[in-house]
Design a protein around this nucleic acid. Structure first.
Lengths: 298, 298
DNA sequence: ACGATTGATAGGTTTTCCCTATGGATCTCC
DNA sequence: GGAGATCCATAGGGAAAACCTATCAATCGT
């Protein structure tokens, strides 16, 4: 049995006429008759009563019409699904990220992606960078956003964006009166820092300070970046934070650019080299395009 | 999309090899490659990763494999159903019959038919002959078994069997001592009869008596033929009954043949001339064949 | 009764499909 | 490390199919 024969039969059955069905199928009438005959021969059953004046369905024909429609519908649905999967519009996407990145630019990136592929089931796994690498390797996640490129050979990294480092100080602090601050000026300040063991950003900041000739005096070390603004406002000192978190806090804290600016903190999209999912490829493609545009606009 | 392409793809996907799949399909490898390419082009999606060493499924290919199998299964199931309907092995069969005929030879006929077509849903509508004709005409039933041929022009009748008339008498009755009885001898007996208004058989018996030169003295008239044996045993008189019911009663009643025998009561298969159902045609064909054999054997 | 319409059939052409032969790439074995 | 084997892709020719036009037989409506 052939899908074409099914389509042809349905047309004849619906039109109750070979001639009309042939017209609908953009076909001449003789091959249509032949196909129906072939179908009947294969099924060993008459499907249509034909007189030279009208065409009627037999019981077998009625069944064939119903089943044929169901088959065509299923075929169409299968085509749609396969096409969607192939285009990366259906599937799952597991992302790894640290909280600070998630609350930063990643959120808007995810929103942009969701508009393009609303049927993709996205899950963000918020965890430390080292765990993210492991998750990528054991295929728990597809993509990670990490500051810095991991050394693993099976992973590919692409620059997502560069993040400026800014100084967060309490409103009353003497540096809050300045328009910009040099890094070396922070040598004498108390610093609130993230735990360098679990945060790439913390390590990056530390290296910047070392490059500027001092080791920051740590007044407080926290695990969760969200705690930093509260501590700054409470007068524990100053902190070097990614620019993106400046959006979220305002009242008691001032943000000041560092000039001359240290090398920007680079955030990378990391994924397996052998990644096959079109969802993942689509996401990466969209992300690079989207972030490229944004960079120019900003 | 074409069923052949689906079959071809499934073979390749299952074998994880074009060469092996081609062998399984009794096909050379090149056209197989071409069909898969055509399928991929139509779906706008790669379904397979091919290196010159191994073939793997993409996510879209996995989906295609699942959906393709489902499609083929549905197609096969549709073919089976249509074939069965066309062969009259699936469907419904509504029969009309009076109780006496149902309890007579019809029961064994239905049993024989059920063996041939166990999936056909049979329903017997037990009702008076006039209602059976109406049911046939308004397509409530497909076939009726009736004594005598109806006059309606849209109905066809075929002789099913001829039923001998036998005399039922109480064991102690003087006629019970006889080996055979002439119809005229019953002129002086009390008769238990069925209601002639609802029973063709009753009318037929009455005509036989009239032909023999007497009108039966009615001691009791009943509507349900099943009541007759009880009344005979209770001494209400004698009754002329179809031979077939002789099987069911024994103890208090004797059955004696009528000689010379009156014209046998003919039972007909009646059905619409324009009947299309293969189930009905099958049943009629089997019935005539089966009853023909039985008649010769009996 | 005659013209119009319907589905089936016949014959020829185009398209599709399949086969053999071959090429490029990778793996295996010596 | 190189030769042979194996795998999938491509090219070109021949066979099979699908389709078209023309025509026939039967039926309906005028």
């Amino acid at each position: 049995m052939d899908l074409r024969q099914v389509r042809y039969f349905i047309a004849v059955a619906e039109e109750r006429s070979f001639t009309a069905a042939a017209r609908r199928l953009n076909l001449s009438q003789p091959p249509l008759s032949q196909h129906i005959q072939a179908l009947e021969a294969e099924l060993g059953t008459q499907l249509l009563y034909r007189t030279s004046r009208k065409v009627e369905l037999t019981q077998a024909g009625e069944a064939m019409l119903l089943r044929g429609r169901a088959i065509l519908q299923q075929v169409k649905s299968a085509e749609d699904e396969v096409r969607s999967i192939g285009a990366g519009l259906i599937g799952t996407l597991d992302l790894g990220a640290t909280g600070s990145i998630l609350r930063g630019r990643l959120a808007e990136l995810l929103a942009a992606y969701r508009e393009v592929a609303p049927l993709v089931r996205m899950t963000v796994h918020e965890q430390a960078p080292a765990l993210q690498i492991a998750a990528l390797l054991n295929r728990t996640t597809n993509i990670s956003l990490i500051r810095g490129v991991p050394g693993e050979r099976d992973l590919t990294s692409k620059l997502a964006w560069r993040e400026e480092v800014v100084l967060a100080v309490p409103r009353g602090h003497h540096l809050a009166k300045r328009k910009r601050v040099a890094l070396a000026e922070l040598a004498s300040e108390d610093h609130v820092i993230l735990d360098p063991d679990s945060s790439d950003f913390a390590r990056y900041v530390q290296r910047c300070c070392v490059d500027a000739g001092f080791l920051p005096k740590v007044s407080q070390q926290v695990v969760d970046a969200q705690s930093i603004p509260s501590l700054i406002a409470a007068g524990f000192g100053v902190a070097l934070v990614p620019q993106s978190i400046a959006r979220f806090t305002t009242a008691d804290i001032a943000f000041r650019p560092i000039r001359p600016s240290p090398p920007a903190a680079d955030v990378f999209l990391v994924f397996r080299e052998d990644e096959t999912s079109m969802v993942v490829h689509n996401f990466i493609k969209l992300a690079l395009r989207y972030l490229g545009q944004r960079k120019k606009l900003g």
